[in-house]
Structure formats: C-alpha cells, structure tokens
C-alpha cells in the first residue's frame, strides 16, 4: 500500500517536450514510473522519450487512459493546464510549477473541489512511492521503501526528512510535497487522512513552515482523527515578521503564522516536535523505533 500513487498509476505529462519536463520525465521513467504519454499543443502525433505526444489532454485520455497528470508548463499557463486536465476528469493532478498567480489558484481550487478531483501543488516537488513510481522532481536515490509517510510544504526540506528516515532504516510509504503557495490544491489535512488510512504507514512526518494556519488546522484534525504518531518540524523559527521567505506562502502577517504558535498548537494535539531540522529522524526513532 501507499497513498495516491501505486503500480496502477498511468501518468500523462503536460508540457511534455519542455526542458524541465524532459529532464524529470526521463528520471521518472528510469525510476520505473509508468508515463503513458504527454501533451504539447501543436506537437500531437510525434513521440518524445519514446512516448506518444498529444495535442490535448482529451486526445491523450482517449488513447492512453491516464489517471494522473503531471504538469510542468510555465506559470502563466498553469491555470489552463490544470483546468484542461480537470475537464477530462483526471482524478490526480500534480502541478510542479512555481509562481502561479494566487487569483488563478482561487478559481482552480474551487473548480477542482466542485468536480471532486485532487490537485497537488503548485510549487511542489510532487509525489513519490519508493520503488514504485516517482511523479515529480525529487531525487529518487535518497528514498527507501518503508513505513513513514512524509508531507511537506517545502521540496528540499522533504529531502532532509527523507534522508534522515532512510539513514535510520525506516524508509517511506509515500512522500507528498503539497507546495509552498498560499492556496495549495491539497492541504496537510487531506494527506493526513490518506496516510491515516494507509496500512503500510506507521508514522507520519509533517514538515511545516511559517505563514498561514495550515499547521494549526492540521493540529485540530490530528487531535480528533489521526490514530498514528505524527512527528513534525516547523521551519522559520528565526524568520522576521512581514517578509516573504522565498515561498509565496511563507510570511508572518499581522503577528500570525509564527513557528512558535504552530509548534505549541501541534504539541497540544500530541504531535512529537523535532527540536531542530537535524532531529526529524531521531524523533521518528524515539516514537516508533
């Protein structure tokens, strides 16, 4: 078992022939991911990386029946690409691209929810189920099949958490980067629900950061519904107020969204806090080791 991605996942890459999509699709294919084709308008009928290219998602759906879309198109076109995948009923849509305008995301998110589909990202590393499939830009080599589920708002911090849990031998069931934007397609809560129901997952690592209240909302959910241990690290304890720390969503606004508030709320809900970035693996070990 795993969440979202398994050996039945058939991936369609949107913006397939672009340089980033090409680089990461090659790596994904090498990792064993079943990429069934891609979409680049105007290049339909050709092949790329030995996979068929289509002019539209609708054409690709008819021919290859993908059940996941991986989006690499530039930010100005993400709204269109996500809505195109949604219009074709693709149930799992992952948008890697950074820099999507927030107002575009308000519309996209509302539409995705209405249709009952699932969007991961944007501005995220994607999803990996170790040894099965990699839908994103994370380095496959640091992962190890195992029992820790990882959810994170940040790419490189996810890799830290992955490496520490790999080094200590726990491995990961699946890892999901939900992205660093203010309006993400999926929340910590959405992923906590899936990991809580996944038999293979014994503990959940949640890597949060300053800004917004996603961690606080997750704390409430964990208290009421999650019966597996949750380990958390919150980045940005030294971040000043009012400054955007790289990610569009990482900003302490009006005194709200500080790391200290998030940590105390999570502790109240029984979450095990890693006292520093270096202690994520050790904290997992203390809890389930």
């Amino acid at each position: 078992m795993s969440i979202l991605v398994n050996d039945q996942t058939r991936v369609l890459v949107q913006g397939f022939t672009g340089s980033q999509a090409t680089l990461h699709s090659e790596q994904s294919i090498e990792y064993g991911t079943n990429i069934v084709g891609g979409v680049t308008p105007g290049k339909g009928g050709t092949t790329h990386l030995n996979k068929p290219v289509f002019n539209s998602v609708a054409d690709a759906v008819k021919a290859e029946e993908p059940n996941a879309a991986l989006i690499f198109v530039p930010a100005p076109f993400c709204k269109d690409s996500i809505l195109e995948a949604a219009d074709s009923g693709i149930e799992l849509i992952i948008c890697i691209t950074e820099g999507v305008p927030t107002l575009d995301m308000l519309i996209v998110k509302k539409k995705i929810d209405e249709l009952g589909l699932r969007l991961i990202g944007p501005n995220c590393p994607g999803i990996i189920t170790p040894d099965v499939a990699k839908l994103g830009i994370m380095p496959g080599s640091i992962h190890k099949k195992g029992k820790v589920g990882i959810i994170s708002r940040s790419g490189t911090l996810t890799y830290e958490a992955v490496k520490q849990t790999t080094d200590l031998g726990f491995g990961q069931s699946s890892c999901v980067g939900i992205g660093g934007d203010p309006i993400p397609g999926s929340s910590f809560i959405d992923m906590l629900e899936l990991f809580n129901d996944d038999e293979e997952t014994e503990a959940i690592v949640m890597v949060g950061e300053i800004g917004g209240s996603a961690e606080e909302d997750a704390a409430d959910y964990i208290k009421d519904y999650v019966n597996k241990p949750v380990i958390s690290y919150i980045a940005g304890q030294t971040a000043p107020a009012g400054k955007r720390m790289g990610h569009a969503g990482a900003i302490i606004a009006g005194g709200k969204g500080t790391a200290a508030d998030k940590i105390s709320k999570l502790q109240e809900s029984g979450v095990h806090i890693a006292e520093s970035l270096l202690h994520i693996g050790e904290t997992v070990k203390k809890v389930i080791g």
């Binding site: 708002r153 030294t238 970035l277």
Partner: peptide
C-alpha cells in the same frame, strides 16, 4: 538551495 531548507538552515544556526 530551496526556500524551506534556507529557513531550516537559519534555524539550525540559531540552534
């Protein structure tokens, strides 16, 4: 490299 790790690095220095 990476915004999250950049914040995490700052925190580690403080730690």
């Amino acid at each position: 490299n990476g915004a999250g790790l950049a914040m995490g690095t700052m925190d580690t220095i403080k730690y």
